[in-house]
Computed example of a mutant assay.
Amino acid sequence: MASSETHYTLPRAEFDKPAKILIVVAPYYKDIADELIAGAIAEIEAAGGFHEIVEVPGALEVPTAIGIAERMSNFDGYVALGCVIRGETTHYETVCNDSSRGLTLLGLQGLCIGNGILTVENYEQARVRAESKGQNKGGGAAAAALHLVALARRWGGARKGVGFVPAQDEYQIAGASKGKHSA
């Protein structure tokens, strides 16, 4: 059983300025989602961060909501939460694979995302993984997002107010040499 295994956990990420984290949750299994959220909030607050929560219809919509928030808001990082339980059809594989792929692609674009979308065989597995006093996968997803935010801040430049963006010299206008922008 996975709960008897021990794993190394990184020390909690530390910040000079608070991190602003968006928790995007698909509450299809509401009690599981509530436990995941509780774990995520506790981890964010323990690191001195702030959070907002938005709900989406299902796990497939989580990456889209994160992509919209990244384009239209100023969050430092994101926590993706939800639960997909295997059923009798291949829908399970589609939802698991595509939600994970969407989050991975966003991460490869530089977004700081902790993936806490549970993919399990049955409700009991979900319950055990979601419990904030147990395996606390919501807290683990928040910790992952916070560690990525810390890396982004280490390698990026400061933003106005709360949050950070990549250093300005990373952007290049087509046809212009790096560091020079044509009007």
Rank of each mutant, 00 (worst) to 15 (best):
L148A: 11
G39I: 02
K137H: 14
T9K: 14
S182Y: 14
H181E: 07
H91F: 03
C83L: 00
H91E: 03
E35C: 01
A130K: 07
I53Q: 07
Q125F: 10
W155A: 06
A141M: 04
H7L: 14
V79K: 06
G102F: 07
A2I: 15
R12Y: 07
A158C: 00
G139F: 04
T64K: 10
K160T: 07
A158E: 13
F164P: 01
R71S: 10
W155G: 00
G39C: 02
I53G: 04
S73P: 01
H147K: 02
T6M: 15
I21R: 09
A158M: 01
A38N: 01
V149C: 03
M72C: 11
S99Q: 06
N115M: 11
I85L: 01
G179M: 01
H147M: 04
T6Q: 14
G157R: 09
A130Q: 09
P27G: 02
V56G: 03
R101S: 09
G140Y: 12
V56C: 02
F50C: 00
A176L: 11
G58E: 02
L103E: 09
Q168A: 14
A69C: 06
S182M: 13
A176T: 14
T9R: 15
G102M: 06
L81Y: 03
E5M: 14
K17C: 01
I32H: 02
V165R: 12
